[in-house]
Design a binder for these strands. Structure first.
Length: 445
RNA sequence: CGGGGCGUGGCGCAGUCUGGUAGCGCACCUGUUUUGGGUACAGGGGGUCGUAGGUUCGAAUCCUGCCGCCCCGACCA
């Protein structure tokens, strides 16, 4: 993309409404615009990152054998009356009437819809196990939305639902989700720690939430420092292997890691003192096993091998896709702006032309743009007739992990400059060598 | 929902207390200049001062209602 043709309304000054760094940077970098309290338009740059995150989630869910679909945002109240949650959910649920005065709602979650789909078609244990998921906009009418996309009213979320014949099978699904979530977060450049959680309004005995450590996190967290040493790396995971998935869960959840909601001082005291850590965290996902709560209430049963009608065991599993943008920025920024992890960056590499109109500089930039594009990458070429300082400031603000700087002075010696946004380290390279290096970096992402 | 605050060109703010017909910085447009980390100068465009009503010769300014947004708390992905 050429910046002169793109739509990137960056702000030099921070709008007064933004308090936390991710919100400020998203506004300044021209990623979002508030439409009303807790509701945002996603401008091109923000939309691009949102889609990258969504894509990672899709890939990892499908790798785990979970099946994508799409359910509507607006739902009929009838199903929610059946489960009992129409009355239980409270003011957070946005209730709407249609022209026929029928009660509708903007879905805050989808257990009722998915259970209705399941019971409409599935009759036999032979159709199990089954895990369906979708990524869709949700709405929770927060009393006080804040922190930009981290606590909006409208938010984009992946929610998945497993249907299994037995509790053991459902727990395998639970473990599978934990593994796929760990993989997803790691690809986004985040370390998200699974922590024992409360069931909340969705309910459930087995539940973990995934927290990203950040000073601005909404929850206080207590953990054994050993958990932050765990990485997922290049593990070869067989999602059908029950023992292997259970082993990962054991490995990642056996050490103490809890939010203030479930914190237990007596257990905490057993953690070696030099490994006790108290910090803040941002919740970016949660997994639940809740057994037959919805299947019994809504008659989602299958016939088992013995001919009995049995309610299916279910779980639901969510990743806050839009919230992740905020979490990633909270964990990856400096005074100059955002620093995108390579896995989610909106553009792979920036190209800064220091002297637009200079024949050699223009030609070199076009060459770089061409080569990077042909290598399957998306460069962002700042071809505006701006001063160098302004171009650098924009690049730093929007946070592309790599930048190639091209100017007449360097070109006289046959070099351009490749700069790492995170470390600030630069090296002078021949243009082809700079391209080769960037291509190699992304080949490993 | 309790408590607090704010609505003035696109953004950040001053002006409100003490009423006299709207100003500054950034951004934007034009020209000159400059060009390796947000050049300098000159000229220019853009605002029913959130909204409705009231008081007054006169309201951004005083009074009342309403709307919107932000912060703290409680609550939550």
């Amino acid at each position: 993309m050429r910046l002169s043709r793109y739509f990137l309304p960056v702000l030099k000054e921070t709008p007064a409404e933004a308090q936390i760094v991710s919100h400020r940077l998203m506004l300044r970098a021209g990623m979002i615009k508030q439409a009303s309290a807790g509701i945002y338009s996603w401008l091109p740059l923000g939309f691009k990152v949102l889609k990258r995150i969504e894509q990672i989630v899709h890939e990892e869910q499908e790798r785990a054998g979970h099946i994508p679909m799409l359910m509507p945002t607006l739902q009929s109240a009838d199903l929610w009356r059946e489960s009992g949650r129409y009355d239980d959910y409270g003011e957070e649920m946005l209730r709407i009437k249609d022209r026929h005065d029928r009660d509708m709602l903007y879905g805050p979650t989808n257990e009722e819809l998915i259970t209705d789909i399941f019971r409409s078609y599935v009759r036999s244990y032979k159709d199990l196990p089954l895990t369906l998921y979708h990524i869709q906009w949700k709405f929770r009418d927060e009393r006080r939305p804040r922190f930009g996309v981290m606590r909006g009213r409208e938010f984009y979320m992946k929610d998945g639902y497993n249907f299994d014949l037995s509790k053991d099978d459902a727990l395998h699904a639970y473990n599978r989700h934990l593994v796929s979530y760990l993989r997803s977060y790691e690809r986004m450049g985040l370390q998200a720690i699974p922590m024992r959680a409360d069931g909340g309004p969705i309910g459930g005995d087995y539940t973990h939430e995934f927290l990203v450590l950040a000073e601005t996190g909404e929850s206080e967290v207590f953990y054994d420092s050993a958990v932050t040493d765990l990485t997922f790396g290049d593990r070869d995971i067989d999602y059908d292997n029950v023992e292997q998935c259970a082993g990962v869960l054991e490995e990642f959840t056996s050490k103490y890691a809890r939010t203030d909601e479930t914190h237990d001082e007596t257990v905490w005291a057993d953690v070696p003192e030099d490994r006790q850590r108290v910090a803040r965290g941002i919740e970016v996902g949660q997994i639940f096993y809740f057994g037959t709560k919805y299947s019994e209430a809504m008659g989602a049963t299958v016939q088992d091998a013995d001919g009995n009608q049995v309610p299916v065991h279910m779980g639901s599993h969510g990743i806050g896709v839009s919230r992740l943008l905020g979490a990633i920025i909270e964990a990856n920024h400096d005074d100059n702006g955002i620093i995108w992890p390579e896995g989610v960056t909106p553009f792979h590499c920036g190209i800064v032309n220091l002297k637009q109109g200079d024949e050699a500089a223009d030609a070199a930039c076009e060459g770089l743009y061409d080569q990077l594009t042909k290598a399957g990458l998306e460069p962002l070429y700042d071809d505006r007739n701006e001063r160098a300082g302004g171009k650098f400031a924009t690049m730093d603000l929007i946070g592309l992990p790599w930048r190639i700087t091209v100017g007449p002075r360097g070109l006289k010696n046959g070099v351009v400059e490749l700069t790492n946004r995170r470390t600030g380290e630069s090296e002078e390279l021949a243009p082809e060598a700079a391209v080769a290096k960037v291509v190699a970096i992304y080949a490993g992402v």
